[in-house]
């Protein structure tokens, strides 16, 4: 059963990686709990968890790559991977939809209520003088939160970032074409370009955060506008980071020539993921920055 026969579905040997993953995750979240409660050891435990997870990713993916290279996966296994990735991205999509839903709720329901409009508009009684605007630059109670001085517009960095991410989608597709016609050079250069664009996006985003924090007073603490802004862009940025790491891995594998025009699930998975991150950004750009 466990021999590499084309017709048989590959069932892996017992593996330690799942429990290592559990150990890593548990350590990581335990560390975070300690950290947010100002316990000294927290960051170290977090770091330990991070190290275990890094080890895990190398190990687990290493095994998978080995098995793939030794031809243990038949068509059906590839199908499983593909479908698994599809459902994973679906669940990620719902994670983002959650925050977009919150943006919608806060912007069109809660804040107007507090400002005196709509079904619970009488709530304004409790917040004398508060007027609903979006972006929210005046707060119901600014003793607990510091409102932002100005809103984040779509021009400048966000617009550039949109272009960067869109072109990274193009370069990635170009790389894929390269892969499909066995053009190693096009593949690798396409990937390099994608990574470079992704990294520039990341750098600009960090710069923008700095600007927002120091000059615009737009922080996590500036009421729901700041909260939802950082929640959405932050989780997106986090996904870009993961995406870049995954792109790096497949670049290395491309250089080693591990993908064939017909069999390159890892490449496709990363590409889907990257396009997904791209689409999320577009939604972000329109809903958070523009509108």
């Amino acid at each position: 059963m466990t021999t590499a026969q084309e017709q048989n579905y590959y069932i892996p040997e017992p593996s330690k990686w799942p429990v290592v993953a559990v150990l890593g995750l548990f350590t990581l979240v335990f560390g975070i709990v300690m950290w947010v409660n100002d316990m000294g050891a927290g960051p170290y435990i977090m770091a330990a968890g991070g190290v275990i997870l890094a080890y895990l990713l190398f190990g687990w993916f290493g095994d998978v790559i080995d098995e793939n290279q030794t031809g243990k996966y038949n068509e059906k296994v590839e199908h499983s991977f593909r479908q698994g990735m599809f459902w994973f991205i679906t669940s990620e999509a719902f994670f983002f939809i959650t925050f977009f839903g919150c943006l919608f709720y806060l912007r069109t329901i809660a804040v107007p209520w507090l400002g005196g409009e709509g079904h619970l508009g009488k709530s304004n009684m409790l917040w004398d003088g508060f007027q609903a605007t979006w972006p929210l630059l005046q707060l119901p109670d600014d003793s607990a939160y510091v409102p932002a001085k100005e809103a984040m517009g779509p021009g400048g960095i966000p617009a550039i970032n949109t272009l960067l991410l869109l072109s990274s989608g193009v370069t990635l597709t170009w790389a894929h074409w390269g892969l499909k016609k066995s053009n190693q050079k096009q593949l690798v250069w396409g990937l390099f370009a994608t990574i470079a664009l992704g990294l520039s996006f990341f750098v600009l985003q960090v710069y923008e955060y700095g600007h927002a924090y120091t000059e615009m007073d737009l922080t996590l603490k500036s009421g729901v506008y700041g909260s939802i802004f950082y929640m959405l862009t932050g989780f997106h940025g986090f996904h870009v980071t993961i995406g870049v790491v995954m792109l790096t891995v497949i670049t290395v594998r491309s250089i080693k020539g591990q993908f064939t025009p017909r069999k390159h699930f890892a490449f496709e998975a990363v590409a889907w993921y990257w396009h997904f991150v791209d689409v999320v950004w577009l939604a972000l750009f329109f809903l958070v920055y523009w509108l």
């Binding site: 947010v36 959650t98 839903g101 919150c102 709720y105 806060l106 329901i109 809660a110 804040v111 209520w113 507090l114 709530s123 409790l126 917040w127 929210l136 707060l139 119901p140 109670d141 003793s143 607990a144 939160y145 922080t219 996590l220 603490k221 500036s222 009421g223 729901v224 506008y225 700041g226 909260s227 939802i228 950082y230 929640m231």
Partner: peptide
């Protein structure tokens, strides 16, 4: 984040709404 990082999703003083959590 509301507990530890100063966000205001569920706090009316910052424009949030406790009921939002209930919807989620």
């Amino acid at each position: 984040f509301d507990r530890h990082f100063g966000t205001a999703f569920f706090d009316a003083a910052g424009g949030g709404d406790p009921v939002l959590f209930q919807h989620l």
